[in-house]
Design a binder for these strands. Structure first.
Lengths: 196, 196
DNA sequence: GCAAATTAATGATTTATTCAAG
DNA sequence: CTTGAATAAATCATTAATTTGC
């Protein structure tokens, strides 16, 4: 950015968090969502089972289930999947990028977070692997929404329910337009929050 | 188009639009939102008045007002602002880019839609102007939400209410976290749809 | 003049990037 | 330094303009 020392953008945000003292659960500070290990475990299981962008209904069900372990909102589930998906991809990309770089500047140690858009990638090297990955995922199937119960039961016990975790087809945003006659339920995208 | 004839990507999608025959209003085909000229006019006015990312409340109010002219949902308003903002920025960016290019290939006529990511811009030329623009906008103020009435009255008559269109401060998403005690109303971001 | 074929706009979705709390 | 939250950029898909052959 410009060397003036300006905070790039200083995206506002007053916050004023401290006010939320009398929250609800354990250490509910009203700040950002702090998932419990069980919650993360379950989400990770779902992700490993192939879930990438759950529908609104699924999000709500998941959120409802996970609220058993602590405070949670739908948007947390949504964000979690967004971030996890993106960061898995990112991770994978970085790996295969290193694999593909010939002798450009591979000597440079992997700095903290190279701003990515600084170095226009060849766009052929890693995209292949990503596409491959996505294709694989599209092949996967999704859980029947009742399975969550089972997962919850097993979450502290074992992790050998893998054969259960892939069943139905993912009815993602693409089924959105079928609810067309009405006011169109769940806005198919980022908006699929709809804080119940 | 590409000489292969393939539809570039064809990302699935069954659609089945024709089923929505008995919609509601005038030519309600159930497809995507098709704004009326009045709606666009009002949205543009708000944008010109400095509104960039209205809060959930504002979106709902706007949507409610605009529903007078035809079918509309909150998410349409949200999307409109997203797209309009982005495309204004894009436009501006392209212009200043041309301004700064020395003698690279300025002879080439402005083709249909250069894929943008093909040509990594200097990132110093246009960012200045964009920043300038954004700063200017941040200075602006917003309408008191009752003014919309007046605009609606004048929309088909005249366009000389410009002095009315900038009044209150914009209480954008940054006031989001003040509603923290409860379940946090309106998710501050893309999700700020909440299809009432 | 007018419908099929193309092109241009733009609504909607997904992905990448950035910010900042813990 | 990990990751939840938020925004911006890129992309996809559909509809309105527009052109074109008749």
């Amino acid at each position: 950015m410009s060397p003036g020392g300006l905070p790039t953008k200083a995206r506002g945000l007053g916050r004023s968090i401290n006010g939320g003292g009398g929250g609800g659960g354990t250490g509910t500070k009203c700040g950002r969502w702090n998932p419990t290990v069980e919650q993360v475990k379950l989400l990770t299981d779902l992700f490993k089972a192939g879930m990438r962008t759950p529908s609104t209904d699924q999000i709500q069900k998941i959120s409802s289930e996970l609220s058993f372990y602590g405070k949670i909102e739908s948007k947390n589930v949504f964000y979690w999947f967004q971030n996890h998906k993106a960061r898995e991809r990112q991770k994978r990309r970085k790996i295969s990028c290193i694999d593909h770089r010939r002798d450009t500047d591979l000597s440079s140690p992997p700095r903290y977070r190279p701003p990515l858009h600084e170095q226009p990638p060849p766009k052929d090297s890693f995209e292949v692997c990503v596409e491959e990955e996505e294709k694989a995922i599209e092949t996967l199937q999704l859980f029947p929404l009742a399975k969550v119960e089972r997962v919850r039961a097993n979450v502290t016990a074992a992790t050998t329910h893998n054969e259960y975790t892939r069943e139905q087809a993912y009815t993602t945003a693409f089924s959105t337009y079928s609810t067309c006659g009405a006011e169109m339920e769940h806005p198919p995208l980022d908006l699929r929050l709809s804080f119940l």
